[in-house]
Structures are given as C-alpha cells and as structure tokens.
Amino acid sequence: MTSYIIYFGFTTARTVLNDDQWNRVKDILPGIASDSGTTAANNRLFVEAVLWIARTGAPWRDLPEQFGSWHNVYNRYSRWCSKGIWEKAFKALSSDSDMEYLMVDGSIVRVHQHGAPEKGALSI
C-alpha cells in the first residue's frame, strides 16, 4: 500500500525506495509468506516509515498515522536492529549506490590545521 499525494493535479507516490531498490531487499526481510510465524502485513510500508524517521530526524511519536502506530513501528525496528536485518538490507542496497542523497555539510567537514592559512598572511 503506497500513499499518494496530489500536486497540482498530478498524483505521485510518496516513497523513498523505488521499485528496483524494493525488489532487491524484499526477500531479505522477515515476515514473508515462506517464513514461520506471522506474515507481515506490509513490509514496504514499515520500511518507508523507518526511512521517514531517518530522513526527517523526528521523534518516533511524530510518525504520521498513515504508517501505523508509532510504538509498533518502533518495536519492530528495534527487533530488526538486534537481529541484524537492517545491516543485510543496507548491504544489498549499497552494492549499487547512486549517491542520490549524498550530502556534505560545511558545519561538520573542517579544513585540517595544516591546510588553513597562517595567521597574518595576506588575504585576497
């Protein structure tokens, strides 16, 4: 189930993972019909919820209702962390990285002390 939003009459999917990326990780994730136990209702919606949290930096309680209960999403996220599911998914996705979301922030990246000009040097 993909959520949609309408911009000026055009309907677009609000997802982070495109279909190719999803197809690479969907069989790695637990909860598919071939697994023992409960089958997940919608792994893609859950992954999109976690990516929404990662992208926005919002607290779990601010997760939009379209993704379900924030507490259930958090509990499932925590279980997947302890089982190493996320690491497997990230390895599958990083094998073909497109650098679409690569960012360098000047407040984090600094010039090494030897790369900075000397004090009192002429400036342009």
Rank of each mutant, 00 (worst) to 15 (best):
T2E: 07
T2M: 07
T2A: 13
S3H: 15
Y4R: 12
Y4T: 14
Y4I: 14
I5Y: 09
Y7C: 04
Y7P: 07
F10E: 15
A13H: 04
A13D: 09
T15C: 05
V16P: 01
L17D: 06
N18A: 04
D19Y: 05
D19K: 08
D19C: 06
D20H: 06
R24C: 01
V25Q: 01
K26M: 10
I28L: 15
L29C: 05
L29M: 15
A33P: 07
S34D: 12
S34G: 08
D35Q: 02
S36I: 09
S36N: 13
S36P: 03
S36G: 09
G37Q: 04
G37D: 01
T39I: 04
T39M: 01
T39L: 02
A40E: 09
A40P: 03
N42M: 04
N43R: 13
L45Y: 02
L45E: 01
L45R: 08
E48D: 02
E48T: 03
L51G: 07
L51Y: 07
I53W: 04
R55P: 04
T56V: 03
G57Q: 02
G57M: 08
A58S: 15
L63N: 02
P64H: 09
P64N: 09
P64R: 00
P64C: 10
E65T: 11
E65V: 12
S69W: 12
N72D: 13
V73Y: 03
N75A: 12
Y77Q: 05
S78F: 10
W80H: 02
S82R: 12
G84T: 06
A89C: 12
A92K: 03
L93A: 09
S94W: 07
D96V: 07
D96I: 06
D98L: 15
E100Y: 08
E100P: 06
V104P: 00
V104L: 15
D105K: 13
D105L: 07
G106P: 01
V109H: 10
V111N: 12
V111H: 14
Q113K: 12
E118P: 05
G120H: 08
A121Q: 14
A121K: 06
L122I: 13
I124E: 11
